[in-house]
Design a protein around this nucleic acid. Structure first.
Lengths: 337, 337
DNA sequence: TTGTAAGCGTTATCAA
DNA sequence: TTGATAACGCTTACAA
């Protein structure tokens, strides 16, 4: 079931040359006469020959492919990152092999993925890599760039969720709000804890009391707790348990979108009373009129991909650690209390 | 720069067996004694051996990889389709090689992509494939499934844009609207014409006059004219040229999102009178409270991937043509005129 | 049950 | 400037 069937041998025979000559033509070697090249090119054309990628890779010992492994490439968050990755990778003539770690056991998937020759390098965007996984990664003995996990050993791009959350909540505090709710993903989501910490820190800094009723989780657990449904659920619980909230910090943009829908159904004015923490450069938050914490994921993808290519070319490079600073993307004027 | 370095030879030597035996263990061949298997497995573990994918592919003559080529895999539209594709592909043990045809010349990219052995099959989601490209595809002599282009020769999944648009506009007509605007992508977008046709048809059916001023395009051309920015621009032009519109049909969900933002800025009540045409199962339209024509792209991705796998297993299968019917996803109660 | 050896389709190193 | 031929790392008859 392979694609095509004509090999370099047929071409050589048809052109009346040796396969090595065909190979030279294929690789634009200068040491081939014009006349011969013409013949070979013609034969390639006539026979409709296409080189066999696997054979080439095997012979050359490189795949010209970079793999990107993420928990999901369709989630807004990773999607934005992938845009940056894609552009860079493509520009440099590499292919992109996507592996998504969501559905299955990450260990197993990574193992399947950790095979010699599959890829020249790995871009691993899995927050909270544990030591076991890091061990597997080390085994690769290959160019690896980590996104979302800090490591001195590997190139890594990471960010401070707590700081981002703190900044978002602080923004609301500055607007005069004192009863600020938080919409959180399911508690066992990787990113739930640091964001809640940031929320608490901002209240503390402002001298506001912490009320556990003000943090509400969604029930829906898909996408690691970050779904419109979860936001929809969480805000209903929040308003029920703490009807006096005047502002809301959503731990992610999708949670906020779900919350918007619920608020509209309740006839509440939105988005004046809501700030969103989103790790994105998506226009959606902006176009919905939500304040948003921008973690510049597009930029992260771009830089990480650049670094991985740099590392392919020079594996001895000292590893870099780059922290991504959160940024308040839009300062909405929210209602003062 | 290959990943790992231990080969099957080292493993064989370490375990004191022949490489064929190692290979058998690797492939779970039943014809290997328990004792030998134990030894080999131990050696593999100790040496940290990983099979070389390219070598395996070359020997087996299949890549276990399916390629998906789309104009963009990060756009909402294709992204949704990819979710379906991804799930199916993964379930069947294939890898996903993504190729995005957006930036470059599709011809060139496809050519680069059309190499024997790279992939077992191709999922080509490029609307409006021309004869030249179809010729290239034919050359592949490989399992190919087309999405967005109808062809008797290949498996194809396609839909009727005009019918979808007509359905959306008809919905608004039924709510009693007579001045219905349309937000369109840039005129040279592949999908601009059929959707405008559907719009006109719905008006005609309802005996309403067609006013060219009611169709407005965005200026921004990125994403083939489908961006939040374009929607933002288009609705401003629309309201300026036809201030009496009472309902709006947006040719895509992103256009609608942009329009919403503009309407909010103008202090207009939204989105009671807005219908969207979306090729998605995304919750965004729903959560924004927009009526939406759903083209079930997730389902398309799922079915197309299933078909491509079926075809890999049986290349002689007669080709199927499947038309995707649009569906009104949400019937909002809109203001009656 | 295990080993030997011939592919798989290229590239790359020698000679010629 | 060309042509043989040995890798590349694995699978798979065929022998033992």
């Amino acid at each position: 079931m392979s694609i095509g069937k004509v090999t370099i041998y047929e071409v050589a025979q048809h052109a009346g040359v040796a396969i090595s000559t065909v190979s030279r033509v294929l690789n634009n070697s200068p040491e081939v006469s014009h006349a011969t090249r013409q013949k070979v090119v013609a034969s390639i054309e006539v026979l409709g020959f296409r080189p066999h990628r696997m054979a080439k890779m095997l012979a050359q010992q490189n795949s010209q492919t970079i793999s990107v492994a993420t928990p999901s490439f369709t989630a807004l968050f990773y999607n934005e990152m992938l845009k940056g990755v894609k552009d860079t990778i493509r520009e440099n003539g590499f292919d992109l092999l996507l592996t998504d770690l969501s559905s299955q056991n990450p260990h197993e998937t990574l193992t399947r993925f950790f095979q010699r020759g599959s890829v020249d390098a790995l871009l691993l965007a899995l927050p909270g890599l544990d030591e076991k996984l890091l061990y597997e990664v080390r085994l690769l003995n290959a160019p690896v760039v980590l996104i979302g996990t800090r490591s001195d050993e590997f190139d890594s791009f990471y960010w401070d969720d707590a700081a981002g959350a703190e900044m978002a909540v602080q923004h609301l505090v500055e607007q005069g709000h004192t009863r600020i709710g938080m919409l959180a993903p399911h508690e066992w989501s990787e990113d739930a804890a640091p964001r809640a910490d940031g929320y608490r820190r901002a209240l503390l800094n402002a001298g506001l009391p912490f009320d556990p009723l003000l943090i509400q989780e969604g029930i829906t657990i898909k996408h690691a707790g970050h779904s419109e449904e979860a936001g929809y659920e969480a805000i209903q619980a929040l308003i029920k348990n703490a009807p006096d909230v005047t502002a809301i910090f959503a731990a992610s943009d999708v949670l906020a979108i779900g919350a918007l829908a619920a608020l509209r159904e309740m006839g509440k004015q939105v988005p004046e009373d809501m700030a969103v923490m989103g790790y994105d450069d998506l226009k959606i938050s902006r176009f919905l009129g939500l304040s948003s914490i921008n973690q510049k994921m597009f930029q992260v993808g771009l830089e990480a991909a650049t670094q991985v290519i740099r590392r392919i070319n020079d594996p001895k490079l000292p590893s870099i650690q780059r922290k991504i600073e959160p940024e308040l993307q839009i300062r909405m004027t929210t209602r003062r209390k």
